[in-house]
Nucleic acid binder design. Sequence first.
DNA 1: ACAAAACTTGAGGGCACCCTCGACTTAACC
DNA 2: GGTTAAGTCGAGGGTGCCCTCAAGTTTTGT
Lengths: 185, 185
Amino acid sequence: MVTASKPLRADAARNREKLLAAATQLFAERGLDVPMEHIARRAEVSIGTLYKHFPTREDLVSAIFPERLAALDVIGEKALVDQDPWHAFVVYLEDLYALQAEDRGLNDILARDLPNAPEVVSACHRGAGHAETLIMHAIAGGGLRPDFSITDMATLTRAMAQVIRDSPGEWRRFLSIYVDGLRAQ
Amino acid sequence: MVTASKPLRADAARNREKLLAAATQLFAERGLDVPMEHIARRAEVSIGTLYKHFPTREDLVSAIFPERLAALDVIGEKALVDQDPWHAFVVYLEDLYALQAEDRGLNDILARDLPNAPEVVSACHRGAGHAETLIMHAIAGGGLRPDFSITDMATLTRAMAQVIRDSPGEWRRFLSIYVDGLRAQ
DNA sequence: ACAAAACTTGAGGGCACCCTCGACTTAACC
DNA sequence: GGTTAAGTCGAGGGTGCCCTCAAGTTTTGT
């Protein structure tokens, strides 16, 4: 899958890397809406060069986020080996939102449903798959209220995105109250 | 306080009303960020006239929202006469978010903390006062977890704003889970 | 060292929104 | 009805972002 279709010229390869580095930083700091001009400037490259390498913002996103989203798989798999299904589920939520809180771009991706890039979409689906399994196990184990669904989790995730955006210090507190509402009974 | 400083000319008074009506509609439908041009167009008035009457968006907001925010007082006072303090608190939350769900402009005002207009600010303070009393009573009554604070409520409100924006059908469900997390014990 | 191909550059056109201001219109008062 | 202050109008200037493309530069292969 490394499809090195056409080998880039030396300067082009260098600029591509500088662009990716700049975009990675800025997406994390300021979210996916950061102006293209800012990315080009931080990469010390002209706006035209940015568009040569990445004709759309989507292209940039899909070049960057598959790696970021791999972290989702890591926490998902970590949770799946946990013996206590309720504990696994809670830890998963904590890890997920900690990730979101660290990266505004990731927060944006998980909040809105705009990631049209196929690799991003599939990573999100994998994440949802993990979540669904964890939910089922936690319900079966009797810890999680039986009516909790993946839809509720999506809603929670969007709500958390907002909390993280405007009061980053509050998300753990917010989550802990919500989680108390999730216990069976 | 009706300060009819200078009596408006007949046409001006008419236009002012048309502008207020248009803005009230559009704020409720599309939120506070609706373009000024749209408001003028819906009022069938030129953009210049809009700016003559309301030099800033803030002026428009503070002409419209005090009335809307009075609804907050109504639900606050309704809740305060409820005998059961836990029930009062829960009903207050439900009424509040139902209000938010009906009016995107109100949702915006309560979510972001941008309402600089003095009358809007004071209405929000009154609302927060009611909320704080209800919280104290509900804690004293033993229904609400004792560590719940007005800060938590502000966080919840912003989270709800987001839920209402991107999945208006989900807010009751979301609230009910959160409220389950709020019971004492 | 040269030519061709690949790449870079930034001025500039487009768009959506903001807001202003001078020329026109109209209500109000005599 | 005429005067004039009050009000209306909308073209247009400003900003910030989008994206393109013709002209210039650099790498690569010979």
